[in-house]
């Protein structure tokens, strides 16, 4: 019993320590973004890596998500004879929920994992210590461009996802099942309002911050990992943890933001 209590206490302490570290880390990174000098080059490189290079996968996921939504939606709506609502069903689910969430999950898989591994390897090979000893703030030099790029990229990628998804739905709904083209777009036009779009933007901004925060902090604090953060295995384990944690956090925050904004 005593052992069990000890373990619970130990876990709580570890969790609190981690949370505190991550909080301070985020604060320092945000300070790093605000503090001059501002360098465009590294931010553009990160925008290219996190944003531009994710476009292809977003196009694919967006198109097929829209298509399957139309497919499922068509069969469900046909039962009640309201195929005309297909456009609004596809539009609303994409803009409010699936667009931001799936885009974020794709970026976690593609860029989040890479960022965690990159920073983790830099930590393991003392490159971060080297930066600190050279009086270069790693929060500003390494993290700030990633945060800016993450926060800017996610809404843009989500827009692309939504647009492609809506056209995917169009191809299946209108092209395949013969739903009236005017009804598809008119339904969407009349049911999607500014609050829906606003919710999508808030979500994607929040997810952009979360993805980079978790991935970068996990890599940065690799040496504090309780399961042992050293070596190649440590990096791979921590990267997996970061991906799982980011994905779960995105889903939890998706619910919370929806609950707050609805």
């Amino acid at each position: 019993m005593l052992k069990f209590m000890e373990r619970v206490g130990d876990d709580c302490l570890y969790f609190l320590e981690q949370a505190g570290r991550m909080g301070i880390f985020l604060f320092n990174c945000l300070l790093g973004i605000l503090r001059p000098p501002y360098k465009l080059g590294p931010t553009i490189r990160q925008l290219h890596f996190i944003g531009a290079r994710s476009i292809f996968v977003i196009l694919f996921t967006g198109a097929f998500t829209g298509m399957v939504l139309a497919l499922q939606g068509y069969y469900a709506l046909r039962k009640v004879g309201s195929e005309g609502f297909l456009g609004s069903a596809v539009g609303l689910s994409l803009i409010r929920e699936l667009g931001p969430v799936l885009t974020a999950l794709m970026v976690v898989g593609r860029a989040g994992s890479a960022i965690c591994a990159e920073i983790g390897i830099m930590r393991n090979s003392e490159q971060i210590d080297a930066l600190e000893c050279m009086a270069i703030d790693p929060h500003k030099y390494l993290m700030a461009p990633k945060f800016i790029a993450g926060i800017l990229s996610l809404p843009l990628l989500t827009f692309i996802f939504d647009v492609i998804g809506i056209f995917g739905g169009y191809v299946v709904g209108v092209g395949l099942f013969g739903v009236n083209e005017g009804a598809y777009f008119q339904g969407m036009y009349s049911s999607v309002d500014w609050p829906d779009i606003h919710m999508g933007i808030v979500k994607s901004l929040a997810f952009g911050l979360l993805i980079i925060w978790i991935a970068a902090a996990k890599g940065y604090f690799l040496h504090f990992e309780r399961s042992g953060g050293f070596g190649a295995e440590g990096v791979s384990r921590t990267t997996t943890n970061a991906v799982v944690l980011s994905s779960v956090t995105i889903l939890v925050w998706n619910y919370l933001i929806t609950a707050i904004l609805l």
């Binding site: 990159e118 390897i121 830099m122 090979s125 003392e126 490159q127 210590d129 080297a130 000893c133 050279m134």
Partner: peptide, 11 residues
């Protein structure tokens, strides 16, 4: 500082 494993930025 010259680190033991040099810690050059490998990228």
């Amino acid at each position: 500082v010259l680190f033991q494993n040099v810690a050059l930025f490998d990228s």
